[in-house]
């Protein structure tokens, strides 16, 4: 695997839209060609090389390419946009749409990331070592298809609207979660190791929420359904089981109605 390191040298005055920072766009290019890739600051078209120092050549394919983003990328949007393979490591914080629509490969953000990370993610792995913003793994505006595959791990906290319209895949949040988790979800799983506020599973059709900490206010549409023992990350524990959202429509599988599941550690 070849490594390309890009280091911020001119921080944009406004924000940079750089959907070209992805192994797919870099693949088959040398450092000079990568520096010519297009980016936008507001309505002004520019090149990656104007903002970043580029060193190293990419591999022949996305799978053979690793990108390391160094320096202040706090104002850079769309890193890892639509990536299908390879690896991206963001050493500091990044702005919105990190790993949006990603399909494969591995993206690691060592700092905080902005809203809309992993929008409509289909596959691959996203690790956020800092905090995630709002709408993690959610659908794009107006779409009814959120994250449908792949894995996300957030080591810090997540904002609101995690997993909105989620269809599949897994999200694990080691910290706490703001309001609205898996709203309108029809599949997938969100595990929250810390606490959550409220509106968990609102309008949920199908899918699973597992929470280890507290929930400030439960949705009234979640009905108690006894207790179960679950194994999460190799450890067994007892959970109170709820099904819902009882106010929402639900599908039938083999004659039985399928509900969303919420497990809260006892």
């Amino acid at each position: 695997m070849e490594t390309v390191t890009i280091t911020m040298k001119n921080v944009p005055a406004l924000y940079l839209e750089a959907e070209t920072i992805s192994p797919d766009a870099f693949a088959g290019k040398n450092a000079a060609q990568i520096a010519e890739l297009p980016v936008f600051e507001g309505n002004v078209p520019s090149t990656l090389g104007k903002y970043f120092e580029v060193s190293g050549n990419a591999g022949a394919t996305a799978a053979d390419t690793k990108i390391v983003v160094k320096g202040d990328a706090k104002k850079v949007k769309y890193i890892g946009f639509k990536m299908t393979a390879g690896e991206v490591v963001i050493e500091g914080p990044a702005d919105q749409y990190v790993g949006a629509w990603m399909k494969g490969g591995k993206l690691t953000a060592k700092g905080d990331v902005g809203a809309f990370a992993a929008t409509a993610m289909k596959g691959g792995e996203l690790v956020i070592e800092g905090n995630a913003g709002n709408y993690l793994g959610a659908a794009y505006r107006g779409d009814w298809r959120g994250m449908s595959g792949g894995k996300i791990l957030v080591m810090g906290n997540a904002g609101s609207d995690t997993g909105m319209y989620m269809l599949g895949g897994e999200i694990t949040i080691n910290g706490n979660c703001d309001v609205h988790v898996m709203t309108h979800a029809e599949g997938g799983k969100v595990t929250i190791k810390g606490n959550a506020k409220s509106k968990l599973g609102g309008q949920m059709v199908d899918g699973t929420i597992i929470i280890f900490g507290n929930i400030d206010v439960m949705m009234p549409g979640f009905k108690p359904n006894g207790e179960v023992e679950l194994e999460v990350d190799g450890a067994k524990a007892k959970f109170a089981h709820f099904i819902g959202d009882m106010g929402e429509r639900h599908k039938k599988k083999k004659g039985a109605i399928v509900y969303g599941n919420l497990y809260k550690k006892i």
Binding site: K199, G202, Q203, M219, P220, G221, M246, G247, E248
Partner: peptide, 12 residues
């Protein structure tokens, strides 16, 4: 949001 959901549950 909770009260709206509760109305939907009550209707069902």
């Amino acid at each position: 949001y909770e009260l709206l959901d509760a109305f939907r549950v009550a209707l069902k």
